[in-house]
Simulated assay, not measured.
Amino acid sequence: MRKPLWRPSLGFLRPSMWLPLVLMLTVLAALWTWGARSMPYLLPPLGDIGSTLSEDADYYLRNAWVTLKEALGGLGLGLLAAFVLAIVISEFPLARRAIMPVAVILNVTPLVAIAPALVVAFGFGPAPKLIVTGLICFFPILINTSMGLRTVPQPVLQVYQTVNASRLETLWFIRIPHAMPYLFAALRIVFPLSVVGAVVAELSAAGSSEGLGTAISLASSMNRLAAVYASIAILALLGSLLLLCVTVLERRVLHWHETRQGAGS
Score class of each variant (00 low, 15 high):
residue 172 W to N: 09
residue 63 N to I: 02
residue 15 P to R: 10
residue 138 F to P: 08
residue 59 Y to E: 12
residue 105 I to T: 12
residue 114 I to D: 02
residue 65 W to Y: 14
residue 238 L to F: 07
residue 1 M to R: 15
residue 28 L to A: 04
residue 90 S to H: 03
residue 50 G to P: 05
residue 224 R to L: 15
residue 201 A to L: 01
residue 30 A to F: 11
residue 21 L to W: 14
residue 222 M to S: 15
residue 107 N to S: 04
residue 32 W to Y: 01
residue 108 V to G: 04
residue 88 V to A: 10
residue 148 G to T: 01
residue 77 L to E: 05
residue 173 F to T: 06
residue 64 A to S: 11
residue 34 W to T: 01
residue 43 L to D: 00
residue 231 S to P: 09
residue 205 A to T: 07
residue 215 A to L: 15
residue 114 I to Y: 04
residue 127 A to G: 04
residue 169 E to T: 08
residue 194 S to D: 06
residue 190 V to N: 00
residue 36 A to Q: 08
residue 156 V to L: 14
residue 224 R to K: 15
residue 254 L to W: 03
residue 194 S to P: 09
residue 236 A to T: 07
residue 263 A to F: 06
residue 160 Y to M: 15
residue 109 T to K: 02
residue 112 V to S: 15
residue 182 Y to C: 09
residue 28 L to F: 02
residue 219 A to I: 07
residue 49 I to K: 07
residue 121 A to Q: 10
residue 77 L to A: 10
residue 192 P to D: 01
residue 194 S to F: 01
residue 173 F to R: 09
residue 38 S to K: 09
residue 75 L to V: 03
residue 52 T to R: 10
residue 38 S to G: 08
residue 181 P to N: 03
residue 110 P to V: 09
residue 155 P to I: 10
residue 188 R to K: 14
residue 82 A to W: 02
residue 42 L to T: 12
residue 112 V to Y: 10
residue 17 M to E: 06
residue 25 L to P: 02
residue 262 G to W: 10
residue 255 H to T: 01
